[in-house]
Design a protein around this nucleic acid. Structure first.
Lengths: 415, 415
DNA sequence: AGCATTTTATTTACTGCTCGAAAAAAATAA
DNA sequence: TTATTTTTTTCGAGCAGTAAATAAAATGCT
């Protein structure tokens, strides 16, 4: 709560932001309804709405809906909504095996999307910023109409970010850490560029996806080729910085335990990621170097065998469940989420890990006293990430636009 | 970031709060200087200051200081400061062995203080709220002049709070959990009552005590008859609710490990609290019931023996250090404090645990990549708690007073 | 003593924002 | 064509903040 002086200008900014965020949350609506939803007076809505339309951020919608049957009685309501063409953003999901770039407009609609493969050796020769720059150029080339309206580039990555959020200090994606990513793109495209941890976006996306979670604290655990977690708290949405991102997968489970891909011994990931389960299942000692990568099919087969009751596989998933359960129990002592969402390929093995996860949670005093968090399983992790990124990117855009541009006097406008 | 409509009133509230918090942080100062420190115009300072003085919250200070040698040239500056008699707060530290009640005035000056013993059986017969009510009455009786100016009661406790912060759901203080504490006191005294976790206050107090920590994230670890931790983040001061309080002492260290006083196996506390070290040192198996309490002198003797190099004791402290080190390493994956402050009786054994603590931290990928947090030792934990409580209580008071009262027209005032 | 100087604090004139109420606009119903 | 209904805009008042001018309260100098 950094206090700073408030004046008429900050009031206007706040209320413009209120109008935009209400429209984001509840969709297009006429001015009268907007007054009700925001708590502002009709007079203010007229003023603010007029400004935002003049600025090109909002537009009046044809007739919106002709809701209940026949004709309405009075002056017809004209809904206002976001001007799709006001600006655009590019959402990038950078993963261990591929990069997906999505172009969305100001209304949040997907305009275009390209995908490119990421090989383990790719970033040994190509700088990540260079690869991304090329792909962004390509996407822009395919959509010439967006012109200079590209306002924001949001990148989702796995790994640890540096303080300023400019680069990765460590990542499971080979050779990607170290180099600055944000700065070169910022310079190349002259717009805001941000790097976010995949885990946090997963959690925020889960909140958007399940209406029931809207007012709960959520931890989303990804289980797959890595183990990752992000947390999201209500009322503090879009907490910038590194907040909400964790390194859950690299939390120690057992001192001097199994070797993790990160080089440290005993991480949760070393027991619960695909390679960890595989190692346990086939009796490979924990001191053995982890497999560089596990084919998706091989992991699916493993889950299948486990479900069929194959002893060694069931045991391996039990070990994985114990690592995750104790990890969650330890987490609970620091920050107690009310809801845990499990996503990723490992979600399909949840039933094999469930008992151990619950046992691990119950070994935590916090859970014994306050109860265990509700756990739900969601298979597809791509959608929450994407939704989360779109939502937070647009919210940031709203902030930037309603904060910066208004005071400009329409001096040299076309008249 | 819950958006709500802003108007002239919210501007005034914000700026009144700004004036008060500036005065809290930087002490009494004349209006001109206040204008500079807050960023508000002189005109606004005149208006706001006048209001606050009329309201009785601030007063003009005689001459303050006659700072550099001889006489100043122009119109003498008259400093404004808090009106001591505007209101009072009672700060209560409820501990395993005693309860301390401090009466402070609006300027934060200690007016009176009483202390009463807490025995392990005390709360079997007396409800905690009843005991506190009696003690508060006693304190009030000794200070009749405060009259109705008692505005706030802040209570520091150890243990877990319920959602609403009304009662303890679990506590190391015997028989204290379960019963509502806040509500009865609120009804008895008709003022705001709040329950805070001792750990969080410790961390916030440490920030106030060491100016160098002002802009860092801090974790304060208490080591003594329990192990506890609180965290404090800059820029988000007085984050209300349960934020910043942890159950670090009851984070699992080893699955199926040593028995903790809380009844769970493997908690950090079971290895690192006084009883845990004692148990390890004398070869008592971890499955043995922990001692009900360890005399302070016995623990001091233990530390003394350890420092003198007694093998079994050194080993016991090493085990304690490992528990704390791994615990901190695990914590780092969720929330990475830049600074760790160690307080309490165990602080004097830090050197015996240091190597193990550092080893535990280094077993965490986060520390390997981002470096280990700085660790400092501070022996006395009472002072930070008290300072933290006074600061946050007065900040809350400022908020309540500058938000609520101003719009009241001085209708039936004495004229 | 009396006037200039200096520093602090207040007053004045003005801007921008929101609000409530009244007026205007735009449709249907009779 | 006129009444009715609903949405939207306009108008006047009120309030908070700023910059600049003014007042206040002291010292220094002649």
């Amino acid at each position: 709560m950094v206090r700073s002086v408030a004046d008429a200008d900050s009031v206007r900014r706040q209320n413009r932001g209120l109008v935009l965020s209400t429209l984001r949350r509840e969709g297009p609506m006429p001015r009268t309804q907007l007054a009700g939803a925001t708590g502002l007076s009709h007079a203010s809505i007229t003023a603010i709405g007029g400004e935002l339309i003049a600025q090109g951020l909002l537009v009046e919608q044809g007739t919106g809906e002709t809701p209940p049957g026949g004709k309405q009685r009075g002056r017809p309501a004209v809904a206002v909504t976001f001007n799709r063409r006001a600006c655009h953003a590019i959402i990038i999901e950078l993963d261990t095996n591929r990069a997906r770039l999505s172009l969305v407009d100001y209304a949040g609609t997907l305009v275009d999307r390209i995908e490119t493969e990421v090989t383990p050796t790719l970033f040994r020769e190509t700088r990540p910023a260079t690869l991304l720059r090329e792909q962004i150029e390509r996407l822009r080339g395919r959509n010439p109409t967006i012109g200079a309206t590209l306002q924001r580039i949001s990148i989702s990555v796995q790994g640890m970010l540096d303080r300023g959020g400019d680069r990765l200090t460590w990542s499971p994606i080979p050779h990607v850490s170290g180099e600055s990513i944000v700065l070169p793109l910022q310079q190349a495209f002259g717009c805001a560029v941000s790097l976010s941890k995949r885990g946090r976006l997963l959690a925020e996306g889960a909140r958007l996806l399940y209406p029931g979670l809207r007012d709960l604290s959520i931890a989303t655990v990804f289980i797959g080729s890595t183990v990752a977690m992000g947390m999201s708290f209500p009322e503090r949405q879009a907490a910038q910085g590194d907040d909400g991102g964790t390194e859950f997968g690299h939390m120690n489970h057992l001192p001097d335990g199994a070797l993790c891909r990160c080089g440290v011994k005993g991480c949760i990931e070393a027991y619960a990621a695909d390679y960890g389960v595989l190692r346990t299942a086939y009796g490979v000692p924990g001191s053995a170097m982890p497999a560089a990568s596990v084919p998706a099919a091989a992991y699916r087969e493993l889950v299948h065998l486990g479900r069929a009751g194959r002893r060694n596989v069931v045991h391996a998933f039990n070990v994985a469940g114990q690592a995750i359960g104790f990890g969650l129990g330890r987490l609970m002592t620091i920050a107690a989420p009310a809801h845990v969402v499990i996503v990723g390929p490992g979600a399909s093995a949840y039933e094999l890990m469930r008992a151990e996860i619950e046992a691990g949670l119950n070994a935590s005093l916090v859970c014994r006293v306050g109860g265990v968090p509700a756990i739900t399983v969601h298979h597809d992790e791509r959608e929450p990430i994407f939704q989360g990124m779109v939502a937070s990117t647009l919210a940031e855009l709203d902030q930037a636009l309603c904060a910066g541009t208004p005071p400009e006097p329409r001096s040299t406008s076309v008249e």
